[in-house]
Design a protein around this nucleic acid. Structure first.
Length: 491
RNA sequence: GGCGGCAUAGCCAAGUGGCUAAGGCAGCGGUCUGCAAAACCGUUAUUCACCGGUUCGAAUCCGGUUGCCGCCUCCA
């Protein structure tokens, strides 16, 4: 596997060349914990979740760091609004984040550090920046001097003289250059504060990521990720500080995911058009949301719409129906497949380039083309159904073996995408739970089916159809098969 | 003002120099079924916003036009 992934810093797809062979260090900017997460956060988390799952499945040893920013202006503002303690507020939303991520099937990062646990490191870093002439003090505030770093702007592709600093927000008059940013802020009364050589205060944004990535991954590491909106100023500033204080390369590869829009507009609180993960999960199954969010390339904007998610659900139902058929034919499949399924050795064994997994790998290797990979999954599903439809399959050993292999393959691919990890019957049960399945009594359904079966035996089709229609109105679909009649809720 | 992105069927969406332009959803026709459901088969873009150029060959590269979006302020 050679993952080729777009590097924002060079604006090109590049081979992921690792600093230490076999190991990947990845740092992703998590969330500032002052409110519930929305589906934009979900997309970002899912994209990097898939990246990490894929790297691991390729046999790499991944160290995944995702931080919490738990001290910041917005947290303070929110805490004041609610008359709450900032730490309690942050903790509340860290817990909420963890719950939401779990619901979405997003795996925990290996390290989930918090800014407030690294104040000491931040102070040290500021001292280094001061010593090296990259920072200056104004009163009790410390600023980073963007003009002291000639590479400033290289990451986001901007030039200092082309940016319109202050066009929309007043520039702090203490700054030497309008783009200079704060490293340390003197505490105002009632704000959380820490001791420092410059008096009581708190760190500026950006600094925590520089310190924590360095602490857990080193001066130079492989991948730094986050939403596109973090590119400037956050990542630009982070990079500037880190390179000035630590040297090295900092992040070798920058990966940024695109936004989720609603009605083609970026979600924002001022427009009131943002949807929390919780609310989204009330009306949609988590795997449906995942499939939906992965069905477009991660760098493009994706528009969240009810019809789009419903289409994703219809597609996922199709896959699960096929898995259910496979289970009925072959017995239940393993829910957990070998998570190293995509390492080069495994792939070369008895497979050619046209077979499913190598194709899946080549799509994923091409800048994480999950949309293409999902298309491939559907093609495989059709192949499987076709094979199961052929009448002699039931007695044909080689067909059965092939179906076993096919199932293993799609489950392996699904695992990388964080999909298909549920048993089909459980998936269908979960899918109907949020809707009004509550009013349906299985015993009543069974009785009605018995009634209909009797009518059918007497070829009383009118009565049989009447029962079918009554059930249909209740949202129950009947399926007559060789083993008798089964029922399911309409989804 | 600067920077970046996008435009592919009714809808969603891959494909970024060369076989018949993936796949999903929706629709229509068929197979199966007493009728259905599910599944399968067929069908729905001679064409990829528009104009010009490069090339033996372009949805794919280059230039221009139009439209939409994002960033330059906190944001995943």
């Amino acid at each position: 596997m050679t993952l080729r992934i777009y590097n924002t810093a060079t604006r090109r797809k590049e081979d992921l060349v690792l600093l230490r062979e076999g190991n990947v260090g990845i740092y992703v900017c998590g969330v500032t914990v002052y409110d519930l997460c929305h589906i934009g956060h979900a997309r970002s988390a899912i994209v990097f979740d898939v990246l990490v799952r894929y790297l691991r499945a390729s046999g790499l040893n991944v160290t995944y760091v995702r931080n919490f920013t738990d001290i910041d202006d917005k947290i303070i503002a929110r805490a004041n609004e609610l008359a709450k303690d900032t730490f309690a507020l942050a903790q509340q939303y860290i817990d909420a984040f963890r719950n939401d991520m779990k619901s979405l099937g997003v795996l925990d990062a290996d390290v989930e550090p918090r800014a407030t646990d690294h104040i000491e490191g931040m102070i040290k870093m500021i001292e280094t920046l001061l010593e090296r002439g990259h920072a200056y003090q104004q009163g009790s505030d410390i600023f980073f001097s963007v003009e002291s770093f000639k590479g400033y702007g290289a990451l986001s592709g901007r030039r200092l003289d082309e940016m319109q600093a202050g066009s929309r927000i007043a520039v702090d008059e203490n700054k030497r250059h309008p783009m200079d940013f704060v490293l340390w802020k003197a505490a105002k009364p009632g704000e959380p504060k820490w001791e420092s050589p410059w008096g009581l205060g708190r760190p500026g944004w950006h600094l925590e990521c520089s310190v924590m990535s360095n602490r857990y991954l080193g001066v130079s590491f492989d991948i730094h990720g986050g939403g596109k909106d973090l590119l400037f100023p956050h990542h630009e500033n982070e990079r500037a500080q880190s390179l000035c204080a630590n040297g090295g390369e900092f992040a070798r590869h920058w990966v940024h995911n695109g936004f989720v829009t609603i009605e083609s507009e970026k979600m924002s609180k001022s427009l009131g058009n943002f949807l929390t993960i919780r609310d989204a999960l009330k009306s949609h199954h988590s795997q449906v949301l995942r499939l939906f969010l992965l069905s477009k390339h991660y760098r493009s904007p994706i528009d969240f719409s009810a019809s789009g998610v419903e289409a994703a659900q219809a597609g996922l139902v199709r896959i699960y129906r096929t898995l259910e058929r496979l289970d009925n034919l072959l017995g239940p499949g393993k829910t957990n497949v070998d998570n190293k399924a995509f390492s080069a050795g495994d792939l070369s064994q008895g497979s050619n380039e046209d077979s499913f997994l190598p194709q899946f790998v080549s799509l994923m290797d091409d800048d994480l083309n999950t949309a293409g990979a999902i298309g491939l999954l559907f093609e495989k599903v059709r192949d499987i159904n076709r094979l199961m439809d052929s009448s002699d399959t039931l007695r044909d050993d080689s067909s059965l073996r092939r179906l076993e292999d096919d199932r293993k393959d799609i489950l392996a691919a699904g695992q990388v995408l964080g999909l298909l990890e549920t048993r089909p019957e459980q998936f269908f049960a979960e899918l109907t739970r949020p809707s009004e399945a509550g009013g349906i009594d299985p015993a009543v359904i069974e009785e009605m089916i018995r009634e209909r079966t009797e009518a059918r035996a007497k070829k009383d089709w009118a009565k049989a159809d009447q029962v079918r229609n009554r059930l249909k109105e209740m949202g129950v679909i009947l399926e007559d098969g060789p083993q008798g009649t089964t029922w399911r809720l309409d989804v």
